[in-house]
């Protein structure tokens, strides 16, 4: 399980306008399906309190170990009689925000590093890039685990750790685009017209960054959800009784011989979620730049 591959900014035509996501979705089936799945997931996370039939942490020992399709509990109940479907729905409220925060950490920190590195060049660039190299020298999950081990196991620290792991991809991406734009005529021209660096960045870099960042965000969201699940599965992320998918698998696998669905249902939930983001990211990459197709 490795980190989502960093995409290198394409060399080609520079003044690409960011493509409207909906327009892309109309043309590309993968983008459409990916976008729809992700939208559904966000809706589930948003509406979990409304659509869940039960309280996800309310125990009901008399109704423990109900199999799926039991009356009142569509996906059954766990060892403490908690309603599985409610826990799964509420689980989206853990996974998605974790991914969101982690990606935000990676994007903001990585983006700043890339921006400074590419814009300043010279020694600053050299030093910052060695730090990025050092981050990349760790296998992604090992780095996340090590960071959580140091910070202490908790959902918040898992988010931070996954965010740090995501930094290098964004730093390299942003730096590549900055380096590519810097010698371009229009940047040099606006500069000679007295535009401040900040203005140049806002006016020209951001639009050029939109497409590759969009792709990277979907791919690293997929990775973040997977990594969060792994950390929680290992007991380094969400702690009981939080209805977290990874955590549910950890407890569920104890009951594998008799009640396999306790582990299998949350596993399916994670797989679908990660698949949705990967599909969106892959299709976006193909749709936005066919040369990057792998």
């Amino acid at each position: 399980m490795s980190n989502a591959p960093a995409i290198v900014a394409a060399e080609g035509p520079i003044r690409r306008r960011p493509v409207a996501l909906l327009e892309l979705a109309r043309k590309n089936r993968g983008v459409l399906v990916g976008l729809a799945l992700v939208a559904v997931l966000f809706l589930v996370a948003l509406l979990a309190p409304v659509i869940s039939p039960h309280d996800p942490i309310a125990t009901e020992p008399d109704n423990a170990y109900l199999p799926p399709l039991s009356p009142g509990h569509a996906l059954g109940t766990d060892e403490l009689g908690r309603d599985q479907i409610s826990r799964i729905l509420w689980g989206a409220r853990i996974s998605l925000p974790v991914a969101f925060v982690a990606v935000a950490v990676g994007l903001v920190a990585g983006g700043l590093i890339g921006l400074v590195s590419g814009y300043a060049g010279g020694l600053t660039d050299l030093l910052l890039m060695r730090v990025i190299d050092a981050l990349l020298a760790f296998p992604a999950l090992i780095l996340a685990i090590a960071l959580v081990a140091a910070l202490g196991p908790s959902l918040r620290n898992a988010m931070i750790a996954i965010g740090i792991v995501a930094i290098p991809a964004y730093a390299r991406l942003v730096r590549a685009v900055v380096l590519q734009l810097k010698p371009m005529e229009f940047v040099v021209a606006t500069r000679s017209l007295g535009a401040t660096p900040v203005r140049i960045v806002l006016r020209h870099l951001i639009p050029n960054l939109m497409n590759p960042v969009l792709v990277q965000v979907s791919l690293s969201a997929g990775f973040a959800i997977l990594a969060e699940a792994v950390l929680s599965f290992l007991g380094l992320g969400a702690q009981p009784p939080t209805p977290d998918w990874g955590q549910m698998i950890t407890t569920g696998r104890t009951f594998l011989p008799n009640d396999p669905w306790l582990a299998i249902i949350p596993g399916v939930a994670i797989s679908i979620t990660v698949y949705s983001f990967n599909l969106l990211g892959d299709s976006l990459r193909d749709a936005l730049d066919p040369r990057l197709r792998r």
Binding site: M1, L256, G267
Partner: peptide, 22 residues
């Protein structure tokens, strides 16, 4: 290819244990 990168390997492990071992 699509499933392999989306399904967490600990989950695959658990399914394998359930199907082939248990």
């Amino acid at each position: 290819a699509v499933a392999g990168v989306s399904v967490p390997n600990f989950f695959i492990g658990i399914v394998l244990i359930f199907v082939l071992s248990v």
